[in-house]
Design a protein around this nucleic acid. Structure first.
Ligand SMILES: [Mn+2]
Ligand SMILES: [Mn+2]
Ligand SMILES: [Zn+2]
Ligand SMILES: [Zn+2]
Lengths: 146, 146
DNA sequence: TCTGATTTTGCAACAATGTTGTATTTTTGT
DNA sequence: ACAAAAATACAACATTGTTGCAAAATCAGA
């Protein structure tokens, strides 16, 4: 019980920090992200929280979190965006998630490899990169140990 | 007229090479890819060819082309898969498109930068990468010249 | 703590996107 | 030219995402 209160306090604090009103659905969805290491697809969230909340609320909550810099999107090859918590550097309208993402082909978990920075690229003449996304697919830490 | 026949022969040859029967829709869609440098989203193809063909046919044609190694998919941040022609190395079930993709934020064209190979990554202990996708966003060759 | 303004939610209706089964048409190899 | 095989169109459906608005919850100030 006390643990739950602490968790709620954490998420509540995070919401207030980003000047968002504290609501049940936001707390619930934010806790889903806190409670596990990987990323979540919209579908995952809808399954875990959607029984309690409307589908539209989930959409709007995720959209708000992205705009405020609380979570960021991870593009995947199968055309299903996944979401993961941002680190502290991100703020409203300014994301700074310059890290590599990893999708495990065995357990299907998506990881933010926060310590693996996106590499530099030598692009052809005339091309100027503003942002670079790197998505690695393979076997994750957990699965390779087995 | 003769030009059209030459184009058709090219695409026809490509289809036969991959042991696909030559049909009007496959020729048409393949020519769409041939006739322009960038990648195409499903929506683009449906607009350009869909007046003539059923939507389902477009889906199944693209799926077939991907399976046969004629085109490959490009994951994008906005959750809309784009497709582009593969180079010769790809074959049924085995894609070898180890190049960087570039999306222009100005003209929204998606390019395969065939000469920019995906960089190596130093991943944390336990993570083994099988495939790496790199997606760069910025200003393209055409747009930066203006 | 009460209250009015503001924000968020749930609902409904809708649009867009993708999937599946099947009869018909087209293509292919002989 | 023909029979077998493959592809297509159509319909029906499922999933996913969007929008407007009334009701409910939250917030800030008194
Ligand atoms: Mn991340
Ligand atoms: Mn490519
Ligand atoms: Zn794994
Ligand atoms: Zn451009």
């Amino acid at each position: 019980m006390s643990k739950e209160i602490i968790l709620d306090n954490n998420t509540e604090e995070l919401l207030r920090k980003h000047r968002l009103s504290v609501t049940e659905s936001r707390l619930k969805i934010l806790n889903l992200f806190m409670d596990q290491p990987g990323a979540l697809a919209h579908g995952d969230i809808e399954k875990k929280a959607g029984e309690k909340f409307d589908r539209v609320t989930v959409y709007r909550t995720l959209q708000t979190f992205v705009e405020k810099g609380i979570i960021h999107t991870i593009p995947t090859a199968d055309n299903s965006v996944r979401y993961a918590l941002c680190r502290d550097e991100c703020s409203e309208g300014h994301h700074h998630d310059h890290h590599v993402h990893f999708i495990c082909t065995s357990c299907d978990t998506t990881y933010c490899l926060d310590d693996v920075v996106t590499p530099e690229l030598k692009l052809p003449k005339g091309y100027v990169a503003q942002q670079i996304e790197v998505l690695a697919k393979g076997i994750c830490n957990e699965c390779s140990g087995k």
